[in-house]
Design a binder for these strands. Structure first.
Lengths: 88, 88
DNA sequence: TTGGTTTATCGTTCATTGACGATAAACGAT
DNA sequence: ATCGTTTATCGTCAATGAACGATAAACCAA
């Protein structure tokens, strides 16, 4: 895994809200933006922006289904990430 | 490990140079600022700032010895961090 | 086809970051 | 006591980040 991509993932997780979002997505496997908006005290646009950052880092992926987008954690990327930390 | 501290560590590692600095410190166990300055194409003040951020996150600790500061990775914190990622 | 739901994007604002040079502070050696 | 070495901090500047409201886009249902 290249340093640049690692940095992107680290950076994406470098915000408390985004950490909690990822933890939540892992717990319930998959979820839509609106569900997260209901949990956190931030606006819809802010949450959408956080999800975008997570998606761009590669740790989360989103699947458009109708008007909704289902987000889930990319298990392959997470595993690569885990492996890096383990060998650090 | 609290979300806030995790975010600080993630954020500290969210920069390619700081990732490489940490990798380097782990490899050679301990090192001083000047040594890192010689490796990277950045000024002394920039490297010092990066080291400060790493130190403030808790993942790195520095020991002042005369005019030099010896930096090393806090193994306990790294282990806690590893454990978090593992259980994610 | 109109209306409601869901999400993404745009534009704005203020705060933070990353880089630099200059300078100060701490120390060892002469 | 002064000089060279090493590091930290200050001030600056441009770029990026985090939050928001408003709006657009995509879709389903009536």
């Amino acid at each position: 895994m290249k340093t640049e991509q690692l940095a992107k993932i680290f950076k994406a997780l470098g915000h408390p809200t985004r950490i909690k979002i990822v933890e939540h997505i892992i717990q319930i496997n998959t979820c839509v933006c609106g569900e997260i908006v209901n949990i956190f005290p931030f606006s819809q646009s802010t949450i959408s922006q956080h999800l975008k950052i997570l998606k761009e880092s590669g740790i989360v992926c989103g699947e458009v289904e109708g008007p909704k987008t289902y987000f889930c954690v990319d298990k392959a990327v997470l595993e690569q990430f885990r492996e890096y930390i383990k060998n650090l």
